[in-house]
């Protein structure tokens, strides 16, 4: 039992990081029906930027978010304005897949040229520290990472739920033409929402580099997980993405300790398929857009 609880703690902490990555992906899908398959590559790009700031300027990876997130936000807004805005709405889903896939490959190519395929990791002084709480080990790095992810998700929630901009984002998700008729600048909302969505990748990337070794090709595994989280949570639902990510973390961690680490990733996909058979729209997904 002790081992299972320990695994659950680890799973929740890991799931929180994936929740942050996936929330940006689902936000972008909800607002503009764009499946941003570059989200994983942007996480890895952010991990490299954070690693470089730590290695060359001794900037703590958690603080580096303050530098990396604005850069990735600007990149996201630029990509949206230059490549995605001009897509006709009826083709947006299909063509945006190609555009964001090209972006992912471009990022991988540039990172490969600069850093080659060597695995890197952001090794902080507290990387191997742990707290003991009620007899359970809690990794300091994972706890910090989880805290950062929760903080960013709370900010994202407040932005969407409590601000005029957030209301215009929700309006655009729920009824785009009606939002337009009420004076919402849909182009601006979409560009900013895309920027915010990929900024979550920046925050998650700094964390990812501390938790896992990475190289330019690491985004393939990441994006497949992120897409499955978004589908399980319900396309377009940020709350659903958080719930699905936490579930993924816990299922994988518990299976790893109770059965075998070999089956941990596979077990999540078994649960995913089983839930989707019962509830095709995912946890919080409706047959319409949600947020």
């Amino acid at each position: 039992m002790h081992l299972v609880v320990q695994a659950c703690i680890l799973g929740v902490l890991t799931g929180g990081v994936y929740a942050l990555m996936a929330s940006g992906l689902t936000l972008v899908f909800g607002v503009m029906r764009v499946i941003n398959v570059a989200q994983g590559a942007l996480v890895i790009l952010s991990a490299y930027l954070s690693w470089a700031l730590f290695t060359h300027f001794q900037v703590d990876p958690f603080l580096s978010v303050l530098i990396v997130a604005p850069l990735i936000f600007a990149l996201g807004v630029g990509v949206q304005l230059v490549f995605i805005r001009s897509l006709r709405s009826e083709q947006a889903e299909e063509l945006s897949l190609l555009i964001t896939w090209a972006l992912a490959l471009g990022i991988e190519g540039v990172l490969g040229a600069v850093y080659e395929t060597t695995y890197r990791a952001t090794n902080t002084s507290y990387a191997n520290s742990a707290w003991t709480i009620f007899g359970y080990q809690v990794s300091v790095v994972r706890a910090y990472a989880f805290g950062l992810c929760v903080a960013v998700l709370v900010l994202l929630y407040l932005l969407l739920a409590r601000t005029r901009f957030g209301r215009s984002v929700r309006a655009t998700v729920q009824n785009p033409s009606s939002a337009l008729l009420l004076g919402v600048n849909a182009d601006r909302v979409r560009a900013l929402a895309f920027g915010i969505g990929v900024s979550t990748a920046a925050a998650a990337g700094a964390v990812y580099g501390v938790l896992y070794p990475f190289n330019p090709g690491s985004h393939y595994d990441l994006i497949s997980r992120l897409l499955s989280i978004v589908v399980l949570g319900g396309l377009g639902s940020v709350a659903g993405a958080v719930a699905a990510a936490l579930m993924m973390g816990v299922v994988e961690a518990v299976v790893a300790v109770e059965i075998s680490p070999v089956w941990s990733s596979f077990s999540y996909f078994v649960v995913l398929v089983a839930i989707l058979l019962l509830r095709p729209q995912g946890f919080f997904g409706a047959r319409e857009r949600t947020l």
């Binding site: 005029r164 209301r167 929700r170 729920q174 009606s178 949600t290």
Partner: peptide, 16 residues
């Protein structure tokens, strides 16, 4: 209307 927003938020959106 925006179906998942409250009635009040919908009316406020009229003054966006």
């Amino acid at each position: 209307l925006f179906p998942l927003m409250t009635v009040w938020d919908n009316v406020l959106m009229g003054g966006h």
